[in-house]
Design a protein around this nucleic acid. Structure first.
Length: 155
DNA sequence: GCCAACGTTGGC
DNA sequence: GCCAACGTTGGC
């Protein structure tokens, strides 16, 4: 019985695509800029090294899942919160009391084709998955093992 | 602690 | 570019 958790992480491909992740040194990059408490809490409290995440391209034409990344660090303070020149700067965050955390992701796999949001919407068994629930804008979402397998079978 | 105003996300 | 949904902020 695996105790691995499954996730979905969103990124706008114009800003950071799965190909960008693949091109990073060691195919690994820190996932900075998360500024939502729910997303932060999931990263901080539930993500474990070895967890897998679907890499989702949001604000794309069309949007959809393009591959898989793997969590490869514990959560640690997001350095951009301390940088006044960063758009993620947070005046209320201090080194002693950081507010925002991040983990590192490693490229795992790029699918031969994108599994589009439109396609996912047509699968009745996935209707309760957070990604497909109306109004859910979280940039990090949990996925059940069942939903993970269903989607993987579409590739 | 309420809630109106405001900002952001992200599909369309 | 529009707008629904929803999170955050701040006055009270």
């Amino acid at each position: 019985m695996s105790n691995k958790n499954y996730w979905l992480i969103k990124s706008e491909p114009d800003a950071f695509s799965i190909d960008d992740l693949k091109s990073c040194p060691n195919q690994t990059e820190h996932w900075d800029g998360i500024r939502n408490y729910q997303a932060r809490n999931m990263m901080r409290d539930q993500m474990k090294i070895g967890d897998l995440a679907f890499f989702y391209h949001s604000n794309a034409k069309p949007p959809g899942i393009v591959g898989i990344a793997q969590v490869c660090s514990e959560a640690y303070p997001d350095h951009t919160q301390f940088d006044p020149d960063s758009k993620y700067y947070d005046v209320k965050a201090t080194m002693d009391n950081p507010r925002w955390m991040m983990v590192d992701f490693k490229f795992k796999r790029k699918f031969k084709r994108m599994i589009t949001l439109d396609e996912l919407k047509k699968i009745p068994k996935l209707e309760d998955t957070p990604l497909l629930r109306k109004g859910n804008r979280l940039s990090i979402m949990p996925m059940s093992p069942q939903a993970w397998e269903i989607i993987l079978a579409l590739v």
